[in-house]
């Protein structure tokens, strides 16, 4: 019996060493590649959001829930991640609905152009910090590129072991703790890089969205309908990669067929007041802080008017949480 307990303690110690080593070697996404930390920040939130954004970088860079709250009392959260693919958006939405049922889900349609996994690096940014669930398993299976294997998601040490020679102070500092890098999923970027000459617009052989992508869009639509959520389709006002008219037409038709609202925000960029010489941090791909603020003011007003959202500024409990957030948000943007 004594020997058995001894062996058990040894095994436990080995497991602890394994877990700590695995944690140490995994990227922390705290000061570098912070996009990887966004997916997990949501779990610590008070889940009272009436608006949930899903989609790729065009949502987390362009929509500031803090601005929306300050202006209209809207509680919103951006569950966007880098290069978020359709099946990832679907899985993340499904996961979100386990925690809360929002009134409105805003989905950025840019990802419809990709019907194959794009890169392992993007998969990792979306999935590494996601909590384990059936949704995560489904997303991993759907997203893996040819070189990837499922086990490396279960045991990250299999993927990140070679970081032993690249460990930095960040890896030790954030071994057992984490910090927030976004404000309700909005990632601040204050840099300015004006739009110069854009790459030539290439003609495509086929503009039709794939069956796979439309299939996942159908699933998102059904999921929202089943939960009595209003699904709003948007296209963020990015200048590049090109959002072709043929793409737009398909979404317009899809929205009509499914009784959904679709807003191509690039069409109203002038009305919003976006100045592509000042309001973008990477020459037109994403908006910077000033651009995102303008867009958020515009879109917040639109949501408020159209979808009967609550003004949570009147709710003492919620307001207290958001006022605290607003203080740190303002200090971050100043």
């Amino acid at each position: 019996m004594k020997k058995f307990i001894k062996i058990l303690i040894i095994l436990l110690c080995l497991i602890v060493i394994f877990v700590i080593t695995s944690r140490l070697l995994s990227p922390k996404y705290m000061t570098d590649l912070v996009e990887g930390s966004m997916i997990a920040e949501y779990y610590d939130e008070v889940k009272n959001h009436e608006v949930i954004f899903i989609g790729d970088c065009e949502v987390y860079a362009n929509f500031s829930p803090m601005v929306m709250y300050e202006q209209d009392g809207i509680t919103a959260y951006v569950r966007g991640t880098s290069q978020q693919l359709l099946w990832q958006s679907y899985g993340i939405l499904k996961e979100t609905l386990k925690y809360e049922i929002p009134k409105v889900v805003v989905f950025n349609v840019n990802a419809l152009r990709y019907d194959e996994p794009v890169s392992e690096a993007y998969n990792r940014l979306t999935l590494d910090k996601m909590k384990w669930s059936k949704e995560k398993v489904d997303i991993i299976k759907a997203s893996m590129t040819e070189d990837e294997d499922f086990m490396s998601y279960v045991f990250p040490i299999l993927r990140y072991h070679s970081r032993f020679s690249q460990l930095t102070s960040e890896d030790f500092e954030y071994l057992f703790k984490e910090k927030k890098n976004t404000f309700n999923g909005f990632l601040i970027n204050k840099n300015i890089k004006p739009v110069g000459s854009l790459p030539t617009k290439k003609r495509l052989a086929d503009y039709n969205f794939s069956e796979k992508c439309i299939g996942y869009l159908d699933k998102i639509t059904k999921l929202c309908k089943d939960h009595n959520i209003k699904l709003v389709l948007i296209k963020a006002p990015s200048l590049y990669p090109y959002w072709y008219d043929e793409y737009n037409e398909q979404i317009v038709n899809y929205a009509k067929e499914n009784n959904l609202d679709f807003y191509n925000l690039k069409d109203v960029a002038e009305e919003i007041g976006i100045d592509y010489q000042k309001d973008t941090y990477d020459a037109g791909l994403h908006l910077n802080l000033t651009g995102a603020t303008k867009l958020s003011i515009y879109f917040s007003k639109l949501l408020k008017e159209k979808y009967n959202l609550t003004d949570f500024r009147q709710n003492k409990e919620v307001n207290k949480i958001y006022q605290e957030k607003l203080i740190s948000y303002k200090s971050a943007i100043s």
């Binding site: 020997k3 001894k6 062996i7 040894i10 095994l11 080995l14 060493i17 394994f18 080593t21 070697l25 392992e120 070189d147 990837e148 490396s152 040490i157 299999l158 993927r159 072991h161 070679s162 032993f164």
Partner: peptide
């Protein structure tokens, strides 16, 4: 017990310092 510890150490060394993966 010592053999189990040795196995644990060897596995950890291979896992961390081994050349494998993508």
């Amino acid at each position: 017990e010592t053999k189990i510890i040795l196995i644990g150490i060897l596995i950890m060394i291979v896992l961390v310092f081994g050349i494998y993966g993508i």
